[in-house]
């Protein structure tokens, strides 16, 4: 676990910024299984939004939807994704092709395998640049070299193949590639999970530095909440295909409202302060083919007890919706609603 103290991030006040991506009531299904069920999210320009949750909660599906690379059998069955106000759903394939990487790029989950093993690294830059603009091969290669410089890799490595690079270097190459066209949003799907802790630190720092320097927005997806406290301005927590809580990073860390978030926060120890017993969350995520009725978290929720009959009835029959509990802090929980 790589917990460090949260840093104060200059972009934390994102209220005034322009909305870059808005996901509205998104529903994505894999056949009969609805993996993302009514998600609302917005990402402001220049903001780092963290998205956390257990495996299989729909994080990567959201990433693929925003990137517009969903593959069958996955399909969008409802809602919309607005990029600068324009809906991406129903756009022509060629328009979407141009949108990819030019507007939104992505650092893949286990980027270890994201480079074509039989193509030189430089050629993979060239391929991408020439898919989007008229540029000679030599110019594209020169730019690839500059981008490698930017992430601290010798520019001569454009000649290398993926197997000649270490895991950390490959990840940097992908990050350099993601920044090549100056996209407004970079999606990072578990960008450091496959790396060892030391390299993880370096890469994370690099992402933060580049973000401050270049000002792109980031959708940072991870199952490791501690990582988000370091980099994210705002954090959304997902559970079983829906967003259950959303708040500025520091607020989410210090005052989580949803019992699931509290469980996540207390499932890793603070570095300083008194030693407390770690609680974690009992049980396991539900089967998305038949999610529990009412609040999807209720079978694992410590606050869902039959003794509170009225609350229990709500919890087991009515799906809670996200409501504001503070400026830019939203929670979907019957208990929180009752306390208001």
């Amino acid at each position: 676990m790589t917990v460090v103290e949260p840093t104060v991030i200059p972009g934390a006040q994102t209220e005034a910024r322009e909305t870059l991506v808005e996901v509205r009531d998104l529903r994505v299904a894999y056949g009969d299984v609805v993996a993302v069920d009514g998600v609302n999210l917005s990402i402001a320009a220049g903001e780092i939004l963290g998205l956390a949750g257990e495996s299989g909660c729909g994080k990567t599906t959201i990433a693929n939807t925003v990137m517009q690379v969903l593959r069958p059998p996955a399909e969008i069955v409802g809602g919309s994704i607005l990029f600068r106000g324009d809906d991406l759903v129903g756009r022509k394939p060629e328009e979407l092709r141009k949108y990819r990487w030019r507007n939104v790029s992505m650092v893949f989950q286990s980027a270890m395998n994201a480079l074509n093993p039989v193509m030189r690294v430089g050629d993979q830059f060239v391929d991408m640049m020439r898919a989007h603009e008229h540029i000679s091969k030599d110019d594209a290669l020169a730019r690839a070299g500059e981008l490698l410089d930017l992430v601290g890799i010798d520019r001569r490595r454009t000649r290398a193949y993926a197997h000649e690079l270490s895991g950390g270097m490959r990840q940097r190459v992908i990050i350099a590639m993601a920044l090549a066209l100056n996209p407004e949003l970079v999606i990072m799907d578990e960008p450091t999970t496959a790396l060892d802790v030391v390299v993880q630190r370096e890469i994370l720092q690099q992402i933060k530095d580049l973000q401050e320097q270049l000002g792109f927005a980031v959708l940072f997806i991870t199952h490791d909440l501690s990582l988000l406290f370091e980099v994210a301005h705002r954090i959304a927590i997902m559970y079983a295909g829906e967003v259950v809580e959303e708040a500025p990073a520091a607020e989410l860390r210090n005052a989580p409202r949803h019992p699931y978030t509290s469980g996540l926060v207390s499932s890793f120890p603070p570095l300083r302060g008194p030693i407390e017993r770690m609680t974690g969350i009992p049980g396991s995520p539900p089967d998305l083919a038949s999610p529990p009725a009412g609040c999807r978290f209720h079978p694992r929720c410590p606050n869902c007890v039959p003794e509170e009959s009225e609350l229990h009835r709500l919890q087991t029959t009515v799906r809670p919706v996200l409501r504001n509990v503070g400026p830019s802090h939203r929670v979907a929980c019957h208990l929180v609603e009752q306390q208001r």
Partner: peptide
């Protein structure tokens, strides 16, 4: 992953 990434890069199908 490299095929998914190639697609994400906006290359022609």
């Amino acid at each position: 992953d490299y095929v998914a990434m190639a697609q994400a890069k906006g290359l022609k199908d």
